[in-house]
Design a protein around this nucleic acid. Structure first.
Length: 567
RNA sequence: UGCUCCGUGGUGUAAUUGGCAACACGUCUGACUCUGGAUCAGAAAAGUUCAGGUUCGAGCCCUGACGGAGCAACCA
C-alpha cells in the first residue's frame, strides 16, 4: 500500500511540464468546450527519430491522459520532398511506440481545397496578392532582422487581377518560380515572418496523393494552423524554432475563426542527444554516403535503428519521461537513454551464456565423453521466467578476458593457481595453460574441478571470489556478434564551428565478432528477440540472422565496474 | 546591433498563491550476491548567471547588465 503510493508519486513526481499545466488550466477554465485535441504532424520526407518520439509521447500522451484525442496528420505540402515510402514507415514507428490514432489519419493535402478557398477569400478581402517578382528580389525586399523590408510593386494589385492570376497559377499557366501568392501584412514588422509571407507557390512535381490536381501548394505557415483549425485541434505542440511563427499562425486563425474556438500553438525544446546528430539532413547524409548501412543501422538515432539495436518502446518512453519538456535548449546525456534500456531489459530479458571472445579450457579431471545438464535460472529478477538446462562437459569456452597469465592487483578471475566458479556448475582451479609458441597467444587453459562444488548440491557452499560464464565446446553454436558504440566521438558533433560533423565519426562504432560461442538454447532464437548475455550485456537477434548463421546486435553493455578498477 | 525565447549541482529536470532548493542520471564509498551486472546503504556536488530593487522573507515579482538559442527557403 505505502509502496503503491510511493510508486504513484514517484511517477508524477514534480512531473508536470509547463505544457501539461496549460492543458490542466484550459480544461479547468472550460476552454474550447472542455476538449483537448492534439496532433502529431510529421512531414513524410524521412524516417522518424527519437526526437520525434519526444513529440509523439507528448501529443499522444497528453490526449490520452486528459481524455482527448490525438490525430496523425501528415504535413505533405511539399511534393518535391515527400513520398509514400515515408508515410508507411512513420505509421509503423508510431504503432511500435504503442500509440494509436484510430481512424484519424489525416493529410494536409486533404485540405488543399479548403486552403485554396481560404486563399481566394483573403484575396477578396484585400489581404493577399500575387507577386510577379523572382525569388531573389522578394528576398532582397524582405530586409534583414535589423532592417525593415520594402513593399512589392505588386502589392496593391486589384482584387480582380489577383483572383485571375491566382486561378491561372493553379491552372498551370505559369512557370514554377514565376509568381507567388503573398499575405498582405506588414513589411516593416520586426518579425520577419510577418513581412508579407509567401503562402502559395507554383510546383509542378506530382504530389504523392493528389497527383497533378494542383499546380500551387500552400506553404507550411499557410497550412498548419488552418489544418489545426479544421480538425478542432486545441493544443498544437511543436518545437521551439516555431516560436517566431506563432504570430503568423495566430494571424491566419484570426482570419478564419467564427466562434470562440481557436487552436493554440505551444512550443517546447527539441531533443538533443550527446554523441549523435538529430537533423534529418545530416542523418540523410550519413545514409547516402554509406557511413552507416541505412536508416535502420543500429547506430542511428532513428526509431527503426533503435528498434533494430534492441531498444524497447518502453525504454524510449521511460527515457522521454525522464528528460521532460521545457523551453530551455538542452543537450541530453545518452547515458540516460542507456540507463533506461538497461532498466527495462533487466526485468524482461532472459539470461543466457554467450562467450564473445572465446578461449578453450580443459577440465583435466572430468571424464571424457561425458555430458551433464546443469540447471540455471532464466532471470534472477523474475522467478516466473523459470529455468533451463545447459550442457556441461570436459572442454569449455570462457571469455579470454576472464583469464590472466599474471594477474594484476584486484583481479579475481581465473589465473594460475586460482579458483573461480563456473556459473551454475562447478568450481574450477587453474593448473596451467598452453601458449602458441610463435604468437604467444593462450591456446588452452588446464583446470581441475571440484566434484563436490556443483551448484545446488548441499556441499556446494564454498565461496570463491568470482563467478564466470562459460559454454560447452562440444555443444556451442557459433554466431556473429556486432558490437556497437557511439557513432561519434564528440559530445556535440554538429555544434563545432569550423568542423564538419563527419570529422567526429567514431571509427570504432562497429566491431564485428565472428567467432562467438553461444549456449545451444539460442539456436532457434527469432529475429528481434532480446537476451542478456550474462556479465556482458544486452543483445538482440538481428534481422540478418538466418538458420545457418545467427547474428546478434549488442544493444548496450552491462555497467562494468571492473573497467574502472583497471584504470 | 532588430524581434522572440531561455539561464537552477557535471548533466537533465523539480520547487502549491514568494516560505529551510528536491529528484533522476553520472561520480565516489561501503554492504550483499553463484552476473565485478542488478539490488541496498551512504557521500560529494548548486545557494539558483551578475548587479540593484520590492518584501519580514525572492529561484519565483520589478529594473538593468551578461551569456546562450531561434528568426532574413517559393523547406517543414
Amino acid at each position: 500500500m505505502s509502496e503503491e503510493i510511493k510508486n504513484q508519486t514517484g511517477e508524477t513526481k514534480g512531473g508536470i511540464s509547463f505544457i501539461e499545466q496549460i492543458i490542466i488550466d484550459d480544461l479547468k477554465d472550460g476552454k474550447n468546450g472542455g476538449k483537448i485535441i492534439t496532433r502529431f504532424p510529421p512531414e513524410p520526407n524521412g524516417y522518424l527519430h527519437i526526437g520525434h518520439a519526444k513529440a509523439i509521447c507528448l501529443d499522444f500522451g497528453m490526449a490520452l491522459k486528459y481524455g482527448g484525442k490525438c490525430n496523425l496528420r501528415f504535413d505533405d505540402t511539399n511534393p518535391e520532398k515527400e513520398d509514400v515510402e515515408y508515410v508507411d514507415s512513420i505509421k509503423e514507428d508510431i504503432r511500435w511506440l504503442g500509440f494509436d490514432w484510430e481512424d484519424r489519419e489525416y493529410y494536409a493535402s486533404d485540405y488543399f481545397g479548403r486552403l485554396f478557398g481560404f486563399a481566394v477569400d483573403l484575396i477578396k478581402r484585400g489581404l493577399a496578392y500575387v507577386d510577379d517578382q523572382p525569388a531573389e528580389v522578394i528576398s532582397e525586399q524582405r530586409g534583414t532582422p535589423t532592417r525593415p523590408g520594402t513593399e512589392s510593386p505588386y502589392r496593391n494589385r486589384s482584387v480582380e487581377e489577383n483572383l485571375d492570376l491566382f486561378e491561372r497559377m493553379n491552372r498551370g499557366e505559369f512557370e514554377e518560380g514565376s509568381r507567388v501568392l503573398r499575405a498582405k501584412i506588414d513589411m516593416t514588422s520586426p518579425n520577419m515572418h510577418m513581412r508579407d509571407p509567401i503562402i502559395y507557390r507554383i510546383l509542378k512535381t506530382p504530389h504523392h496523393r493528389t497527383g497533378t490536381t494542383w499546380n500551387v501548394y500552400p506553404m507550411y505557415d499557410f497550412a498548419h494552423g488552418q489544418c489545426d483549425y479544421f480538425e478542432g485541434v486545441t493544443h498544437s505542440l511543436c518545437t521551439l524554432e516555431f516560436e517566431v511563427h506563432r504570430p503568423l499562425y495566430d494571424w491566419f486563425v484570426d482570419q478564419l475563426m467564427t466562434g470562440d474556438y481557436r487552436p493554440r500553438q505551444i512550443e517546447f525544446n527539441r531533443l538533443n542527444l550527446t554523441y549523435t546528430v538529430m537533423s534529418k539532413r545530416r542523418l540523410l547524409e550519413l545514409v547516402q554516403e554509406g557511413r552507416v548501412s541505412g536508416w535502420d543501422d543500429p547506430r542511428m538515432p532513428t526509431l527503426c535503428g533503435l528498434r533494430r539495436r534492441g531498444y524497447t518502446p518502453e525504454s524510449i518512453k521511460k527515457f522521454i519521461d525522464l528528460i521532460g519538456y521545457t523551453k530551455f535548449e538542452a543537450i541530453n546525456d545518452i547515458s540516460l537513454l542507456e540507463h533506461a534500456v538497461r532498466e527495462d531489459l533487466n526485468l524482461r530479458a532472459p539470461r543466457v551464456f554467450g562467450v564473445l571472445n572465446p578461449v578453450k579450457i580443459i577440465i583435466t579431471n572430468y571424464p571424457e565423453g561425458t555430458t551433464e545438464e546443469v540447471r540455471v535460472g532464466n532471470n534472477p529478477e523474475d522467478p516466473s521466467a523459470g529455468t533451463r538446462t545447459v550442457p556441461f562437459c570436459r572442454e569449455l569456452y570462457i571469455e579470454r578476458d576472464d583469464f590472466m597469465e599474471s594477474p594484476v592487483p584486484k583481479y579475481f578471475r581465473l589465473y594460475p593457481g586460482n579458483e573461480v566458479r563456473l556459473k551454475g556448475a562447478y568450481i574450477i582451479k587453474c593448473e596451467g595453460f598452453r601458449k602458441n609458441a610463435t604468437t604467444g597467444e593462450i591456446e588452452e587453459i588446464h583446470c581441475t574441478y571440484d566434484p563436490a562444488s556443483r551448484s545446488g548440491d548441499p556441499s556446494s557452499n564454498r565461496k570463491v571470489k568470482a563467478t564466470i560464464h562459460w559454454v560447452s565446446a562440444l555443444h556451442a553454436i557459433e554466431a556473429e556478434v556486432r558490437l556497437y558504440d557511439r557513432l561519434f566521438s564528440h559530445e556535440d558533433p554538429a555544434g563545432q564551428k569550423d568542423h564538419d560533423f563527419r570529422e567526429f565519426l567514431n571509427p570504432d562504432s562497429l566491431k564485428v565478432l565472428n567467432n562467438c560461442k553461444l549456449e545451444p538454447s539460442l539456436s532457434k532464437a527469432e529475429p528481434g528477440s532480446k537476451f542478456q548475455f550474462q556479465r556482458v550485456g544486452y543483445f538482440c537477434v538481428d534481422p540478418d540472422s538466418s538458420n545457418d548463421k545467427l547474428v546478434f546486435n549488442r544493444t548496450v553493455p552491462l555497467k562494468d565496474t571492473w573497467e574502472k578498477v583497471k584504470k
